[in-house]
Computed example of a mutant assay.
Amino acid sequence: MLAKKANSIMNISRIINCVTHVIFDMDGLLLDTEKIYKHGISTVLGKYGCEYPDDVKAQVLGSQPPDMMRIIFNNTKIGENSGKTHDEIYKEIVDTYTPLMPTAEWMPGALNLVHHLHKHSIPFAIATSSARESFELKTTHHKEKLKLFHHIVLGSADPEVKAGKPAPDIFLVAAKRFDEVPEPRKCLVFEDAPNGVKGAKAADMSCVMVPDSTIPKHSTELADVVIPSLEHFEPEVFGLPPFEKNGNEV
């Protein structure tokens, strides 16, 4: 790898790849929603005497609802303990976390990076596994900032996204919706989840990972660069305009 891994700041003297377009995941990357999802899942599992281990959470990150429930049922005793179906437990989870979704705030460094890209006319989009209703709730107080993004792809609601992450579909769909369609290798993806990184690399795109603290180190190895937060991103590593010296674009 050309970059230091998690819990370190990038310090690279050469360009990894000159990119022209940027694609962001949203949950746990732009918006601090993963703790809300974790609360909902943990609460429902706990009601039936089950825990939500970190290794299961790592598998769930970035997945669409059917995949999420398959992972949870396969790795816990929720089905056996509750006697309920995937759909029934999913509804309980959604009902638990939904009231909290409008409280989601921007992750550290996210708005600074968004404003920097916008200032320098770098096209950028969102590629999230979110369903429409969930997306609208978690972005309740962020509608104006979202107007800065060229477009948004909702994996759970978009008919062109045939398979969820780790398949490359959502990133390829996001790329082709830019006004000037870039080659995949000219796209830079920001992700927090191993499944998202796998999808980005399967799409032949560069990828910066900002992993959740529960992600084991071996699950970060596919990313081109791993940083502890977006505050530590160095745009020039990918041929993008560097931040101003004060590092504040907001």
Score class of each variant (00 low, 15 high):
I215H: 13
F171Y: 14
V189G: 06
A175N: 03
K201P: 05
P228Q: 08
T214V: 15
E234R: 08
V225G: 03
G164D: 08
K198M: 13
P235H: 11
A174Q: 02
T220Q: 14
A200T: 01
A174G: 04
V181C: 06
R177H: 10
V189L: 04
K186T: 06
D179V: 02
P194R: 09
F190V: 05
P166K: 12
A167F: 08
H232F: 10
P194L: 13
L172M: 08
I170M: 04
K165H: 10
G164K: 04
K198N: 12
K165L: 08
D212C: 13
D179F: 03
V208P: 00
F178D: 02
S229I: 09
P228I: 06
K165E: 07
F233I: 10
I170G: 03
S206D: 13
N195P: 09
A174I: 07
V197H: 02
K165F: 08
D212Y: 12
P184Q: 09
D204T: 13
A167G: 11
E183V: 11
V226E: 05
E234N: 05
L222M: 14
L188T: 04
A175F: 01
T214F: 14
P228R: 02
K186N: 14
L230I: 09
G199H: 04
D224C: 03
K198P: 03
T214P: 10
E236G: 12
K176I: 07
K165A: 06
K217L: 15
A203C: 10
D192C: 11
G196K: 01
G199E: 04
A175Q: 07
C207K: 00
A193Q: 11
L188G: 07
D179P: 00
V210E: 13
L172C: 06
H232V: 01
H232R: 04
C187W: 08
K217S: 14
D204M: 12
P184V: 08
P216M: 11
I170T: 06
V225D: 00
V208Y: 04
C207F: 08
P194K: 10
A193N: 14
P216K: 13
E236R: 04
S219E: 15
A202Y: 08
V210K: 10
V225R: 01
V173K: 01
F178W: 00
V237C: 10
F171N: 00
E180A: 05
V173Q: 01
T220N: 10
S229G: 11
V189Y: 02
P194C: 15
F190I: 09
P228Y: 11
A175D: 06
P166T: 07
P184H: 11
A163Q: 10
I227D: 05
D169M: 03
D224V: 02
A223T: 02
P182G: 07
K217T: 15
K198A: 15
F171G: 01
G196L: 07
E191C: 06
S213R: 13
P168I: 08
I170C: 07
F190P: 05
F233D: 06
F190E: 05
K217A: 15
